[in-house]
Design a binder for these strands. Structure first.
Length: 556
RNA sequence: UGGGGCAUGGUGCAACGGCAGCACACCAGCCUUUGGAGCUGUGGAUCUUGGUUCGAAUCCAGGUGCCCCAGCCA
């Protein structure tokens, strides 16, 4: 683990340290509790890193325990994907377990509670249970079945388990207090009847435990010391502790923290699923999604994501983080490691009139100015090149010092060129820029010490390769897509994906999927999984900071 | 009108009775063969009212605001 990730403390780390000091625990074991019903997203990573690093910092271990208590929603395919994403992040676990591994033991614990008079089978309908729960401000009413004797409860539970009753006809409930001010304590359900095959236990069980009945007990069985979860479980903690106390078993400590939110995106599984199902994105790995699979495909590195999580901190405050911080983390990481390449995304043809027609030169270019060990490469140069449309203006606005008629600029690693005139089409659009070059500036340095104010990138038309460029932007136009009553789909960004065809230098002609580059002056790009030798496909990971666009915006 | 939790620059996180700091963002400048990177600098915050104290972001009391809870979801 890197030092940067451990130097900061927070209230959870302090609590863990106290527990060790006081002797409440003499080791640390945490757990990741994903429900295998969806893909991991960046929100999960916060929990993942907290649990992983706290265990690691204390020479403890992390258990990856799938919370598979609801056969109606869970599938094996997600187990695989979650393990894969977790591994990609660099989070290591001591072992993988499943809540379903403990179904037998948990059942025995339930019987123990019945025997102790602390649980009962309730025959009320779901509607009755709900109606008798009371409201936030009024107490609930005891179920008419609440005082059944132990033998009957034992018998009924057994028969529930054996599948003798239909779904919804009965539940096992903890016997606590129907008037409790904390609604979670009003005789919460422990088991419900579900006649559905389970991805691991098959047809064996007809009853499945609720989260509250399963989670804490599993924590205890596994010897978890710190059960770290999000704020919404805060008012479940009394119940978590109640079960453990009644059972008289090992008692882990639950600590809650605020979950991760990021602006301009949504994080709930339900909403992400809708984006996928309504085909608003291409899938769970659409590079615009906040899922790990998508971010991977887009070119994010695990290091950048972990750095982001580290900088976001851990607290109990409800907070929304700025996506700009995430982007900053990726840039910082990629700046150090991405090879520089030249690619023209919106091509404009430039003809260098005084350059020999058939000549080709090989120019030396450095691969990464931040890393000399990355070496250099050769780039072919010839009479006809493409430059970026944005790098030419027939009429330059103030402070614009790229190419315009009469102006001289440097072609990176090549020559100074000066624009002489343009050729337009019928509609008056500039389709060709003509220029002359200065042979004395080969490599990009002038012999006479004259300066140019701008350096632009280019590719040789004859040597360039066509590539598909997928430019991504935030998925939503509003900082908080859920705000307002129109729903999050109302503020989808219509320009979140813009596909174009550009030209790339030869060194970019056959990338492997996942290869990351900086396209100079533009951004970081990653070869997509759909890339092919015939047509390379690149995803924009994140753009470079763009000082010119700010100047331009201010001028308006 | 119940219970639980949270309030510090634009955003996020620190400061644990003793000069309110860091990162991102923002702004200005330097530098630059990427208008990138890097470097330097500026501005800007303790929800409110009282109390305790030599001294309060921190402790106490009241108020206000926001979030979560009435699934046989997790």
């Amino acid at each position: 683990m890197s030092d940067e990730e451990t130097k900061n403390s927070d209230f959870i780390r302090e609590a863990v340290a106290e527990d060790l000091k006081s002797g409440r625990f003499n080791y640390v074991r945490t757990r990741l509790p994903p429900e295998p019903n969806g893909y991991l997203h960046i929100g999960h990573v916060k929990a993942w890193m907290i649990d992983y690093l706290i265990a690691k910092e204390n020479n403890g271990e992390l258990i990856l325990r799938f919370d598979d208590t609801n056969p109606a929603k869970e599938e094996t395919e997600f187990v695989e994907a979650i393990e894969d994403d977790t591994r990609w992040l660099g989070v290591e676990w001591a072992k993988v377990t499943f809540a379903s591994d403990y179904f037998d033991e948990l059942y025995a614990w339930a019987q123990k509670l019945i025997l102790a008079g602390k649980a009962y089978v309730d025959d009320q309908t779901p509607e009755e249970v709900s109606a008798n729960r009371g409201t936030l401000t009024t107490p609930g009413k005891n179920s008419p079945f609440r005082d059944r004797d132990v033998e009957e409860n034992m018998d009924l539970l057994e028969r529930m388990k054996n599948g003798e009753f239909p779904d919804g006809s009965r539940i096992l409930r903890a016997k606590i207090d129907m008037a409790h001010p904390n609604i979670n304590m009003r005789d919460p359900a422990m088991y419900r009847i579900v006649h559905k095959p389970h991805h691991r236990t098959g047809e064996q069980w007809k009853i499945y435990p609720m989260y509250d009945w399963s989670h804490g007990q599993n924590d205890s069985m596994e010897g978890i010391t710190h059960s770290l979860c999000s704020l919404e479980y805060e008012d479940h903690r009394p119940l978590y502790e109640w079960f453990l106390e009644q059972l008289g078993v090992f008692k882990p400590r639950q600590i809650e923290f605020a979950r991760l939110n990021i602006n301009y995106t949504v994080m709930s599984k339900r909403k992400l699923r809708r984006l996928v199902e309504e085909k608003l994105v291409s899938g769970w790995d659409d590079p615009r999604m906040p899922t790990l699979r998508a971010m991977r495909r887009r070119g994010y590195t695990p290091e950048a994501i972990r750095d982001f999580i580290d900088r976001v901190g851990v607290a109990k405050n409800y907070s929304v983080n700025d996506v700009a911080l995430l982007e900053s983390c990726v840039r910082e990481d990629l700046n150090k490691r991405a090879l520089r390449r030249m690619a023209v995304l919106k091509p404009l043809k430039v003809i260098i009139d005084n350059y020999p027609d058939a000549k080709t030169e090989e120019m030396d270019a450095v691969n990464n100015p931040e890393d000399p060990s990355a070496g250099t490469r050769k780039i072919p140069f010839s009479k006809v090149i493409y430059i970026e449309q944005d790098d030419f203006r027939e009429v330059p606005p103030p402070k614009y010092y790229r190419l315009f008629p009469g102006n001289e600029v440097r072609l990176r690693y090549a020559y100074f060129i000066k624009c002489t005139h343009v050729v337009k089409d019928d509609k008056g659009e500039v389709i060709e820029v003509h220029a002359t070059y200065d042979p004395a500036t080969r490599g990009g340095d002038s012999a006479d010490g004259r300066k140019v104010k701008s350096t632009i990138h280019w590719v040789s038309a004859e040597h360039a390769k066509e590539a598909e460029i997928r430019m991504y932007d935030r998925l939503f136009t509003k900082e908080d897509p859920e705000e307002g009553d129109e729903g999050f789909l109302a503020c989808l960004n219509p320009d979140s994906l813009v596909i174009s065809t550009g030209y790339v230098e030869p060194a970019l002609s056959a990338p492997k999927a996942g290869d990351r580059f900086q396209f100079e002056r533009q951004g970081y790009f990653c070869a997509d999984i759909e890339t092919s030798p015939e047509k390379p496909v690149f995803n924009l990971t994140v753009n470079l900071k763009d000082a010119w666009s700010k100047i331009e915006k201010k001028a308006k």
